[in-house]
Structures are given as structure tokens and as C-alpha cells.
Computed example of a mutant assay.
Amino acid sequence: MSKISHLLEMIITLQYKGLTTASELAETLEVDKKTIYRYINSLNKANIPVYTKKGRYGGFYIDEEFYMKPSKLSEEELQSLLMATKILTEENGFIAEKNLQSAVSKIKSICINDDDELKLLNDNGCFKISEIGNLQGMEDKISKINYAINRGRTISINYFSINKNNLTVRKVDPYTLLFREGAWYIIGYCHMKDTIETFKLSRIKTIKATNEIYMIPHTFSLKDYLNNNWGVFKGEKTKIIIKFDKNISEFIKDGRWHISQQIEELQSGDVLLSIYLDDTDELKKWILGIGKDAEVIEPKSLREEIKAEIEQIYKKY
């Protein structure tokens, strides 16, 4: 990431998160603390009011009067950008495809109108990619999360899954609030899944702080977590290939399952469905629901996960 990108992410983090330590900024941007101090010096030279609070509970903060707010695009303008990412590809001779997709992803994360749902698929599909919330709603979410983190309170959220069109209620112990690759995230312990998870703020409909108190485990390392989960923030997706039996081939061919889908008909009458996803939890349920007429071809890791679930089901019966 370039120095300019780092500086912009620092400004946005300080603007919304408030008092932030050099260590937190260093872990977020994946640089050393000396670099953070140089960045702060650069911002001050550019007349951006970043100040230092010394002491045990010190850190950096930005003047409350300073405000940097990106302009909001209409849904039609945003749809045009998304359409461009499908036309301007390396296959069609556009060498900057990855940069364009990254830029549009960052714009999309903050420019969707309040309470609007950007639907990239029709209602006949199994999967829908939707984002909820805008910058105005984001400010309120960030405020509530900061309140919970500062007081060690568990939060209850209504979370919109990227692979299904409904909300789930989650109880989360928020460890940190993170601005990364143009979007805000919560990293914390999910009570429902009994593991540390990453939640994208634009997919959170409501947030409520509870009276339950939590403590961040001493074994948790933000740096290690980011190193092990970097694909979540860089938008990396996995190519998934599923073979469907000829018995349901027409059903698969007539469906709109994902915006990235490619369907290939085989001589046997079976069909191959290829899609790119960053989360496979709901996909696994869908495949298991179809049963013997669906077989995961790639990736091997997903195939093994499906196999393990089938073996557990077999043991029960």
C-alpha cells in the first residue's frame, strides 16, 4: 500500500475512532511504529490537526473540528461503476482490472444510500450480494462500538450475510474497530460461532450494547490475526466449481446464482457451475441441501469440509 493510502486510512481512523495508539495504527497499516511517527509528522506539515496525548492512556487524536467526508454517489452512478468492472477486464485488454475492482469496492463500501439495498442479482437466485448502510449510519455505528469497547461491553448486532438474504442476531465481544481497504470492520469474539470473527460494518443493520462484561484474552494478537486473515480485508475470493447431475441441470442453467457465475454443460448432460466467493458457510448448506445431485470439484478444502459434514451425518444415522 502506498504512503498516500496509509495517510488517508490514518486520517479516517483518527476521525472516527478517536484516541488511537501508535501500536494500533502500526498493526492496522502493517508498518513499524517509527513509520507511524513519520506519518504523523507528514500530516502535521500538511496542516492536518493531529495531536498527541501523553501518558499511560495516551495516543493520537484529531481535532474534532476537522472533518473529511466523501461525496455520496447515487445508486445509478454506483451501478454504472459496477458494470464497468465487468466490461473492463484483462481478458478484454484492460490491464488495470484489479486496481479498478479495488477502487470500486472502496467506493461501494461508503456510498450506498441509507436503508437502500444494492441488489446485484434478481430474486430467483440463491445468493444475493447486498450492502446496508451509508456514511451517516456508519457514524452512529462507530460511536456505539467505541462506547462498547471502552467499557468492555458485549454488543448485540443484526448482521446481514453476504450469501443469504436475511439478518442473523449475533452477540459479539468487540476487540477492536478497524478501517482497512476502504471499509470498517469489527474484530471480536462471536458467541454464536465460538470463535474470533470479522464483521463488516456496512452489513450491520442495528447495534446495541448489552450489560454483559468481557475482557480481551491476553492470547489475542491483532497482528497475528491480520496476518492470518489478510484475504478478508483485501477482498480475495475463492473460485468454486460444483458439478450438478443432469437430473437438475435445467434448474441450474435457468438460475441466477451469483454475479460471477459461469455454467458449462458437459457431454454427459451434467453441468459445471463456477463462482467466486469470499465466504462458503451458506454455500455448504445449499450444497448439502441438494444432496447427491451436487458435487464440489474445487477447491479441495471445501470438498473436504463437505465430506467431513457428510461423515458426521452418516454417524448420526
Rank of each mutant, 00 (worst) to 15 (best):
H191I: 07
E64R: 10
G152N: 08
E97S: 07
K234Q: 13
K141S: 00
K253V: 11
S221W: 04
V31P: 00
K234R: 11
L8Y: 06
D114N: 10
K106H: 10
T13H: 07
T13L: 06
Y276D: 07
G93M: 08
K243A: 08
K69V: 09
L266P: 03
D224K: 11
F160A: 04
I242P: 00
L283Y: 03
D281W: 07
K315E: 15
T195Q: 13
T154N: 08
E27Q: 15
L178R: 02
E97T: 03
Y37T: 10
P299N: 09
H191N: 09
E24Q: 14
G125Q: 07
L302Y: 01
D63N: 13
I252Y: 00
I142G: 01
Q267E: 15
K234T: 12
K307F: 14
I216N: 02
K98Q: 15
I313A: 08
K34C: 07
N99W: 09
N158V: 01
L222V: 10
K141C: 10
T195N: 15
S156M: 05
K300T: 14
N134W: 02
E64K: 13
T89P: 03
M192Q: 12
W184Q: 00
E97W: 12
K223V: 10
L277K: 05
Y225M: 03
I213M: 08
I87S: 12
R56W: 11
R38W: 00
G59K: 11
L222N: 08
L29V: 09
N227S: 11
F127A: 04
E212I: 14
Y159C: 00
F160H: 02
A96I: 05
S161A: 03
V296R: 00
D115W: 02
L302E: 03
D245E: 09
S156T: 10
A148H: 01
L81V: 04
E298F: 08
V232R: 03
S23I: 12
E181I: 05
I306L: 07
P49C: 08
S274A: 13
K98C: 09
K205F: 08
L43D: 05
K108T: 15
S268P: 04
L178H: 01
K316N: 10
K253G: 05
M68Q: 09
E181T: 14
T238P: 00
